[in-house]
Amino acid sequence: MTSVLNVKDLHTSFVMPDLTIAALQGVSLSVDKGEILGLVGESGSGKTLTGFSINRLLSAPGRVVQGEVLLHGQDVLSLGEEDMRHLRGRRIAMIFQDPMMTLNPVLRIETQMRDALRAHEKMSKAMARTRAIAALDEVGIPAPESRLRSYPHELSGGMRQRVAIAIALLHQPDVIIADEPTTALDVTIQGQILSLVQNLCRDRGTALIWITHDLAVVAGIADRLAVMYAGRVVEIGPVDDLLDAPAHPYTRGLIDSVPARGQRGQRLKQIPGRMPALTELPVGCSFAPRCEHAKAACAALPDMTALDAERSVRCFYPLAEGSA
């Protein structure tokens, strides 16, 4: 199966006169049509930066220094800014964590949706309005005609996120990058948004990259997972394999850190220490200082090694099936 989006060996750095911080150091991943890829990591792991790099939303001093982002085989990174504008929002869309930041507070929903539509397609105001109403209806907003007249502050958090999703879906993009879209929402509203996004992507065959720090959220919706640590993907594979038999000690640690059912009151297994700052990364495996399995070989950097056709891991001593 050909992938819609293919990221190869992506390096993003913050280049400053006296200091260069390598924030992403060789991120490779791909998503197929209609597939949901969960991109999991803790703060500072580079998951958001990966989304921004793919969509070329980096601002100086951040820049992609190496690698390819292929959308249907076409390298997005080599496009001119004008071509990128045509692509962004039409073929790659993004949903952010805080819908209050993505929506313009001083414009009505109608104006924002119309602008988004007419940025890529020539159409009359009336036509844009019809399309906007249909899009709002699709994301389950009651009374969409009257909602078009609202300003973002008049909507609840869940409604705002629905509007943001409706805008992302306006042009039927090939890929949607969703950056922690439910983190700021309540549990019941999160459930609504999850089911909505899930259904829309399945029905339309949109590829989705769901960026989150919460393993439990992606466990429910993703087909495949990629786990990031300190600017690198450390493990990637089908969701069931990865969660049931994680190969990387960090993945194992993350899973054990989540309170599970039936272990009430017991101590959670914790990963000692914390993620190193990007300026003081160890030379070899960046997880080695926190890893209970670390050996002498971990002073060198392990490569991504394939375990089977769909799974690979960046570790010299991948955990065997079923071991704790």
């Binding site: 089911s195 429910g220 599970a260």
Partner: peptide, 11 residues
């Protein structure tokens, strides 16, 4: 509540 053991849940 999303849980690790709930895969491909239809919410």
């Amino acid at each position: 509540v999303p849980r690790l053991e709930r895969r491909r849940t239809v919410y």
